[in-house]
Every structure is written in C-alpha cells, then in structure tokens.
C-alpha cells in the first residue's frame, strides 16, 4: 500500500549523516530547555514566538467565542428586561453597602494616619477574558486576552468576583499566560481572617482544593475559616479572599495539621478575571472623600510604599 510514495522511488535514500544531525538537534533542544527553565535568556524569544502563536490561539478560541456571541444575541426582550431588573437590584444592594464602606474607608485611613501606618489604597484593575485554549494537561494554566500591551506584568495577581484566581507567569504582547492557585507548583501566603494566623496555601492539582501543609498541630483553625491574602511575599495584594477551610485533620504522630481548603473563586467556571495593579489608584469606586481628608490619606499613602503588610 505504501510502496508507491514518491520518496520510496529512490530506494537507497538515506540522509548523509542522519545520526549526527539528530544528535546536533537534540543537543540544541536540551540547550534550549536548560536556558528556558534555568535562566531568563529566552524571555524575549519566547515572547516573540508566543506573539506569533497568538493568531492560532484566537482561531482555537473562536468557536467558543462565537457560541457565546450567539447566546448573547439570541436572548429575548423579556430575558433582557428580567436580567436588567436583577442587575439593577444588585447594583442598588451593592451601592447601599458601599455607602457604609466609604465612611469605613475614611475612618480606616484616619486611624491609620494616627498610627502613622500605611493606608490601604484601592487597586487599579482591568477586566481580561480567559481564552478557551487548553494548555499542558498537567498544569493549571490559562491564557488571558490582555498582554504587555496593556501593562500586564509577570507576577501580576488575577482575581474574579469571588476571590484570587492566580498569577501571570508570562506576559506576551497580546496575551498572557497565568497559573491558577491550584496548580501543583503554586503557593501563596495567606492568613486566617478570624485570627490573622499566617500560613501558605499550596495548590494540589485539583481545581477545587488547596492544601495548607505548614500549620502546627496547635494552630487555631477550624472548618469554615476564611483565608485571605496576607500581602507577604509581595505578589498578591493583601486582603483578597482565597479559600474557605473545608477540613482539618489532626493526626496523631504527624508534626503538622492536614488542612484542606476550597478556593473562593470558581476556578472551573470563571470566564472573566480582573488583573490587579496593587496600589495604583484610578477612579475611586466609592464617593470622593472631602479634599482635606483626601490629602491626609494621600500623604499617609505616600509615606511608605503603598502595598505591604500592615502590622
């Protein structure tokens, strides 16, 4: 069946030194791997390659994007009105909560100014969409449709409406690769909201589970505790919800507690994420404080680097 190919007509065909070429290419590949995983030499090359792969990724994403577009455009007037009404109600409820938030924020800034400590400023955010592109099946990686064109940087935190999603690992020109907090290689500094007990939340490779392997057996932690980012480590700004503790096992003979937690963000279903620029204030979400007040907040904010742990 396969005898009739054009190449087989030259029966004696052999490359002149195929073995040598194979060895040379393999050496090149190994060199690339070492350079890529152990140094920063290839960052620019990688960015270039990724930018040229972007059209392919857009193409892969397009059926899903088209499906979403069709769904969005095929809704009836009734559904739109209904959704509009619901959203209005939610906005009203949020606005109500934000009113108290404004005064709390001012009070907080005042108190912090009294303590001569850093005020927590609100962060600049940008909405990015996760592209429907699968990556290495062994890692929890995603691609978002914002890149260094939009000032995205490596190590930038990603959140969704419910909590922390992950961080950017490679900023490409038009897109960025990020790993989720549940990736086996990911760890983030957290604290228990209830008692500020600090620890590290490590990914498990499962989308609905984080593990807290470094808590001593006498640590005060119970199922239901909310974990928030502690701001230590400098990557994630402080105070964003990460996970809820789901199980605490105290095994006799073990040196640490076995604690698992469920991520607050809905990692398997999230479509849109927020990129955070910590400490860069844009338009304030809440009503402007009075000028004199704002001045005081700003001086407090510039006294020290804005993003840091407050103790």
């Amino acid at each position: 069946m396969a005898l009739g190919t054009t190449d087989s007509k030259q029966r004696g065909y052999r490359e002149t030194t195929p073995g040598l070429r194979a060895v040379a290419i393999c050496a090149l590949a190994i060199g690339l791997m070492v350079a890529d995983s152990r140094s920063e030499l290839l960052v620019d090359l990688r960015r270039l390659l990724a930018a040229s792969a972007y059209p392919v990724q857009v193409l892969i994403d397009s059926p899903v994007a088209f499906g979403r577009w069709v769904r969005e455009n095929m809704v009836t007037r009734r559904q739109l009105l209904e959704e509009n009404r619901m959203l209005r109600q939610r906005v009203l409820a949020r606005d109500g909560r934000l009113q108290t938030m404004a005064s709390l924020e001012q009070e907080n800034a005042r108190l912090r100014a009294l303590l001569d400590s850093t005020a927590k400023v609100s962060d600049r955010v940008l909405i990015a969409e996760i592209m429907a592109v699968d990556m290495n099946p062994f890692r929890h990686q995603i691609i978002v449709n914002k890149g260094s064109d939009d000032d995205v940087f490596v190590g930038q935190a990603l959140i969704d409406a419910d909590g922390v999603v992950g961080q950017v690992t490679r900023d490409q020109v038009f897109s960025a690769e990020a790993i989720l907090i549940t990736d086996v290689e990911h760890a983030l500094p957290v604290e228990v909201l209830r008692n500020r007990q600090r620890t590290i939340a490590v990914g498990t490779g499962q989308l609905d589970e984080l593990s807290l392997p470094f808590l001593p057996r006498n640590a005060d932690i119970v199922p239901g505790d909310l974990l928030v980012t502690s701001g230590l480590g400098g990557t994630f700004p402080a105070g964003y919800p990460v996970a809820t503790v789901s199980a605490v096992t105290n095994e006799t003979g073990a040196s640490f507690l076995t604690v698992t937690a469920q991520p607050a963000a809905r990692l398997s279903r999230v479509r849109e994420v927020l990129l955070i620029w910590p400490g860069e204030q844009t338009a304030p979400i809440v009503a402007e404080p009075a000028p004199s007040e704002r001045e005081r907040i700003n001086t407090a904010a510039t006294d020290q680097p804005a993003n840091g742990a407050i103790e």
Partner: peptide
C-alpha cells in the same frame, strides 16, 4: 517548538521528543 509555545511548556521539550 511550536507545540511547546502553544502548550506553555519548557521550550525544547517537545522539540527534543519529536526529533527523537
């Protein structure tokens, strides 16, 4: 190499395996 870039793997990983 193209596969490595698309999959977000170490550059050269699939390059090596596919060459072999």
């Amino acid at each position: 190499l193209a596969l490595d870039v698309l999959q977000g793997d170490t550059l050269g990983q699939h390059g090596l395996s596919l060459t072999i």
